[in-house]
Design a protein around this nucleic acid. Structure first.
Lengths: 198, 198
DNA sequence: ACTTATAATTGAACGATGTTCAATACTTTT
DNA sequence: AAAAGTATTGAACATCGTTCAATTATAAGT
């Protein structure tokens, strides 16, 4: 019923392609990624990639989803040992910055990549983003204070803010930016925002 | 001494090129911009553009600088009639969102564009960014409260945060995003951050 | 075992892209 | 009118994403 080149199943090729792509992004950034480079690294031709991925956007989304998963994992393990929600959120911010710096190119790829205009992110991808916001929201829910507030809104505002600092810090749009400064900015944002929430 | 095609001076061509580029970005986004399209819109050839701009990055930086100037102008005029620094900063946030929504593609181009790796933003461009941060910083300085804080750090943290909300909101990375929701998020971030600052 | 059907894989082709630079066309000077 | 000199061209190069007829390798049928 089937006739393949014997060497690898499509599933194997898929994994090889993703692995090679990640390696290219890590070494040279998203802009250096191309179908021909991926193909040559895994010993196939460009055409083969289009049997497995709809197009390049599809491939990049899958790569970025993996990065988001990795990030989520790191964040979860970072707050294992912390009690108070305030320090949890601070740790989350801290770890987010650390991850972004350590995995600069992979992290950058998530936000450098844009779908063609009007095209919405697929639901399976958006899930990965929401899981991150959720980490913060859970902490805000366990805030035991008298004032009531919309935890979903607060989590979105605060986390988007932290992200904004990271983006501008790591793309040279903040002067004299370095990891330490970015961490201070994130600390400032989180500390004051949380203080204001009470 | 010179031999030009009589039609236009280089300065005129420069302006025509920038105008045409802005028009393309407004209509179709930064990704639709190309040397050939610009050239054909102004009745010249791609090669001509390279007599005037170092390369495409240089051209885009000049376009983005204009957008940053426009934004700055809008922000300044938005806070003309406000007294208290808190409401000034809220207005700044509000106006930033409004500008980003209204000039979506031009605004997007500022952050979609990335220089080749390791290449720093030129100083003349960075000035435009700093002028924006400065609007916030000035307001924070006129905060008359007992507590002392680093106004530069605070302005950077808060404004980067506002920007982060805009980016994620306008690039489909926040669920059910629309201008009203983005405005609420920005309000939340500013209000709580400022409350925490005191 | 041989043939036929079928599916995996190829690689050439298409229309783009940014950028360069010898050749050309035009202006000014001699 | 000829020479000098420069603004402008446009073809060329190396890329890019994507498609699809042609090819190859396997499985099924006899």
């Amino acid at each position: 019923m089937m006739a393949r080149r014997s060497d690898h199943s499509q599933e194997e090729i898929r994994e090889m392609a993703i692995k090679a792509s990640r390696s290219i992004i890590i070494r040279k950034g998203l802009s250096a990624l191309s179908a021909r480079k991926i193909a040559s690294e895994i010993g196939y031709t460009p055409g083969t990639l289009y049997l497995i991925f709809k197009n390049q956007d599809d491939l990049i989304l899958h790569i970025n989803a993996i990065t988001l998963q990795d990030l989520h994992k790191q964040l979860v393990s970072a707050i294992k040992r912390c009690r108070k929600p305030e320090s949890c959120i601070l740790k989350l911010g801290h770890e987010y910055v650390r991850f972004a710096v350590e995995n600069r190119y992979l992290w950058n790829a998530i936000f450098e990549h844009r779908l063609p205009d009007g095209q919405k992110l697929p639901g399976w991808f958006r899930v990965h983003i929401e899981r991150l916001y959720n980490l913060v929201e859970v902490q805000l829910e366990s805030f035991n204070n008298t004032k009531r507030f919309d935890t979903h809104l607060a989590a979105t505002a605060l986390w988007s803010g932290v992200h904004g600092i990271c983006v501008l810090g790591l793309t040279d749009k903040i002067e004299n930016s370095n990891e330490k400064l970015i961490q201070s900015l994130v600390d400032s944002l989180i500390n004051n925002y949380l203080a204001g929430l009470r």
